[in-house]
Write a protein that binds this DNA or RNA. Structure first.
Lengths: 334, 334
DNA sequence: CGCTGGCAGTCGATAGCATCGAGTGCCAAC
DNA sequence: GTTGGCACTCGATGCTATCGACTGCCAGCG
């Protein structure tokens, strides 16, 4: 167990370190009104905190620095997300008041907003289209033997895929295939492609089969991985080693990793993942603050910010909470 | 004018500096077989090169470093792009042999390829849809009052835009509007939206007008700016100041800037822009190597790599040339 | 006249050294 | 349990000397 004073000292060290990025000494902590004991006492408590794994000393004769465990305790003890500044609330409101455009654009803009609010990198994932149903399927000829299959889902996502045809296929055949596909696919979900029976026309059947194949390929793999990363340049200012920056950027370039990182954290019901908690080794110096957002009651995706472990957690939590809520609302009444 | 020996010395300094990132001294240059004079003579020549603005000294007792003007001269004197290594040629061939998927995916993958070849950041722009014609227009209902307008262009691009309708609009009305729009818009270009005459049905007209409006908005602004940036993490290794990295990343996040940068360089007929030549101040420490690519004889877009001014120009030129050519071919026979 | 070796001079980088000071752990006293 | 005192550690800072990689200049050589 940890008594109140010790917790206050831990909190003080974390807050101070987040602010200054310098190891925090006992006198600095003792000076705070929230503590009000002598430096010697603080030292004693800090020694205990260190033994318990909440703090560590970069070297003898230096102050203390929080460990990941220390940050964890600090974050868990944050009661309220700490209100966002008025200016930032206003920024969010203004953004959603005039946000427009299609889903993707909206999410990309949201990542910029969130990054601007927090000064860290922002991550926004789109809804996986798993449970959406197909609203429209259409084949459009591009050239003699190439057509484009376009599929519209109920959540507004549009999937397209090229398909090649063996024979010259006229617009009439494509129109017939479109009608044929529409009859069988509309209302089904893209992951379990409906078996489309024969139409009686060989050319139509060929086009249909290929369309189902390529669309299934794209929908099955491409869509769950959509993610918008914004504001990476803001985040690099928080690091001082170029090598750390390289590692982090390398991860952010792998969309798949980012998506599963966000999903894992959300699935575990967490809102903050500190250091190695998320299991992505190159991000050991980073923390992630995430929140899912809900569109019409259903969890549609997640947003998050990625920053150094010494990030402004309460600000980040507040920003993420507010943006996720507003984003969900905005997308719901579309 | 610059005699042969002086040029050889300049080349030697540039090559050595690109390799080592260390100021190059006279003895190092004199040792090279291509020069074969004493260090004293080299010193004399280097002093002249410095006065002419091709080299500079970081401090008195250090070697010489190329200036932007020096790099420029060096690049201009590169006769052939210098053949790509066999392994890399193979990598390119393998990539295009099994590349598949829609245009966007292809371009995104290409940026990864190019970045992997050069170890710098890669930029790939898509074709502006200016001269493409509309192949299909369709309205799909998403909910009572929201529909999605989907437009397919002859180059395979798909544009979508949400539109809100005042009244509950049934599928029948949307189908009518789709047919109406198709009649008037197919074959026209998205930038000069056809004036769609009245259909005689108020609901259809409303949907049609709104669809034209939102599609025009998106097509007019969104598309010319499409760019795929890959491998930013590879490039940061070439810088040692975090602040430089931040500036460069900040630019790469602004797609619009990147697109116009590439287009400007291509329009000027250049293939290399060194330092401030491209006019984007935060990229003063960077050079860009670009090449347009052509699809069916028409310039469709550009690819490029962005690295430090001391980049491996001949490698980069070779990689960019090869990839742009192969990409053009690959997209042509689609 | 151009090239070269020699030479003095510059100046950053490195290392040794003393000092400073922030911060610690421990202990005796309150 | 808290506190002031104290010895101690050790990084940071600053100074000095040395080293060495350069340069520019000049006189001499082919």
């Amino acid at each position: 167990m940890m008594d109140e004073r010790r917790a206050a000292i831990l909190r003080a060290v974390v807050e101070e370190y987040i602010e200054t990025a310098q190891p925090v000494g006992s006198s600095r902590v003792a000076r705070l009104p929230a503590v009000a004991v002598s430096p010697a006492t603080v030292r004693h408590e800090m020694a205990v905190l260190e033994q318990d794994g909440y703090l560590r000393q970069p070297h003898t004769s230096a102050g203390r620095v929080p460990t990941d465990k220390g940050y964890r305790r600090f974050v868990d003890s944050l009661v309220s997300p700490g209100p966002l500044g008025a200016a930032q609330r206003h920024q969010v409101s203004a953004f959603f008041a005039e946000a427009h455009g299609a889903l993707e654009e909206m999410l990309a803009d949201t990542s910029r907003l969130l990054s601007g609010l927090t000064d860290y990198a922002a991550l926004v994932t789109g809804a996986p289209s798993d449970d959406a149903t197909i609203r429209s399927v259409q084949l459009v000829g591009l050239s003699d033997r190439v057509a484009l299959a376009v599929m519209v889902l109920s959540n507004g996502a549009v999937t397209k895929a090229h398909l090649e045809l063996d024979d010259d296929t006229g617009d009439a055949t494509l129109a017939a295939a479109t009608a044929h596909l529409s009859r069988w696919m509309i209302g089904t979900t893209p992951l379990a492609p409906a078996s489309v029976p024969s139409s009686g026309d060989a050319a139509v059947d060929q086009a249909s089969r290929r369309a189902v194949a390529v669309l299934g390929e794209v929908a099955g793999e491409g869509d769950p991985g959509q993610v918008f990363v914004g504001g990476t340049s803001r985040m690099v200012a928080a690091f001082d080693a170029v090598d750390s920056v390289r590692k982090v950027l390398g991860i952010l370039e792998q969309q798949y990793v980012v998506v599963s990182l966000l999903r894992d954290v959300v699935d575990r019901g967490q809102t903050v993942a500190i250091g190695v908690e998320h299991g992505v080794e190159p991000l050991a110096e980073c923390s992630v603050v995430v929140a899912p957002y809900q569109v019409e009651g259903e969890t549609a995706g997640a947003i998050g910010v990625l920053g150094p472990t010494r990030m402004h957690y309460s600000q980040a939590l507040a920003a993420v909470a507010m943006v996720s809520q507003r984003l969900g609302h905005r997308l719901s009444d579309n």
